[in-house]
C-alpha cells in the first residue's frame, strides 16, 4: 500500500453549459483523502459530465474547481494524472486484447503493469486476458474498466455508475476494493443505486 497523499478537492459554484441551456449550476462541495462522496441525481442531471470535469477531461463553464496535494495547488493536467476514472462513456479498443489494453494504458500512464494485472485477476478476468475486448460481455468490460481506473494507484478514484452491468460477485469485489482504498484515497461515485451511494459517507445531489 502506498503512502496516502493528502488531497483536498474543492468545487465552488461549478456550472456547465451545453448548447442552449445549463446542464447543472452552482454545484459546491469539498472532499479530502479518506472521504467518499456520492453524486446522485436523475437521468440527464449531469452526473457523468460533472465526473468528466472532475477528471480533468472537460472544462467547467463557470465556477471554480481547485485541487491541492498536501496544500500545494495542482493544475488541471496534474490533477488528471492523479485521477482514476471509469465511466460508461469510456470505450475501449475492440481490436486490442485485454492484456494489450492493460499494457497500453499502464505504459501511457507511466505505471507498472503488475498492479493492474492483479486487479484483473481479482475481477475474475485472468482467463480472458488474451481475448480481444470486442468479444467481452458488457459486464467483463466494466470489470476491465474498473481495473484500468486503478492501474496507477490513483489518489482520487472517480467511478461513474460503477455497478452498471456487474453481477452480484462483481459488485461484491467492487465494494471490497472501495473499502480497502478508502483510508488512502478520495473516492467519488456517481450513481442512482442506493447500494453504491451507501458506500459513501458524503453526498451531492444534482437537481
Amino acid at each position: 500500500m502506498k503512502k496516502p497523499a493528502n488531497i483536498l478537492l474543492t468545487a465552488d459554484g461549478l456550472s456547465k453549459r451545453y448548447g442552449s441551456g445549463w446542464i447543472f449550476r452552482g454545484v459546491s462541495f469539498n472532499a479530502r483523502t479518506g472521504e467518499s462522496l456520492a453524486i446522485t441525481g436523475p437521468n440527464g442531471s449531469g452526473k457523468s459530465t460533472l465526473c468528466e470535469i472532475l477528471a480533468g477531461v472537460r472544462r467547467e463553464s463557470a465556477g471554480a474547481l481547485a485541487c491541492t496535494l498536501d496544500g500545494e495547488p495542482l493544475s488541471a493536467a496534474q490533477r488528471r494524472a492523479l485521477v482514476g476514472f471509469a465511466s460508461p462513456r469510456l470505450s475501449l479498443y475492440g481490436d486490442l486484447t485485454a492484456g494489450e489494453t492493460v499494457s497500453f494504458v499502464c505504459t501511457s500512464l507511466g505505471a507498472g503493469e503488475g498492479h493492474a494485472r492483479d486487479l484483473c485477476a481479482r475481477m475474475g478476468l485472468e482467463r480472458h486476458m488474451g481475448k480481444p475486448v470486442r468479444h467481452f460481455s458488457s459486464g467483463m468490460r466494466q470489470r476491465l474498466k474498473i481495473a484500468l481506473a486503478l492501474a496507477h494507484e490513483p489518489s482520487v478514484l472517480l467511478l461513474d455508475e460503477p455497478g452498471m452491468n456487474l453481477d452480484a460477485h462483481g459488485k461484491e469485489v467492487l465494494a471490497s476494493i472501495v473499502h480497502e482504498l478508502l483510508p488512502s484515497t478520495l473516492i467519488i461515485i456517481a450513481t442512482n443505486e442506493e447500494s453504491e451511494a451507501g458506500l459513501c459517507s458524503g453526498r451531492v445531489s444534482l437537481a
Binding site: V57, L90, S91, L92, Y93
Partner: peptide
C-alpha cells in the same frame, strides 16, 4: 469508437 475519452484521460496530447 469513443476511444478518444480514454486517450484524453491516460495520455499527454503530444504523445
Amino acid at each position: 469508437e469513443g476511444t478518444s475519452l480514454l486517450l484524453r484521460l491516460v495520455a499527454p496530447p503530444e504523445a
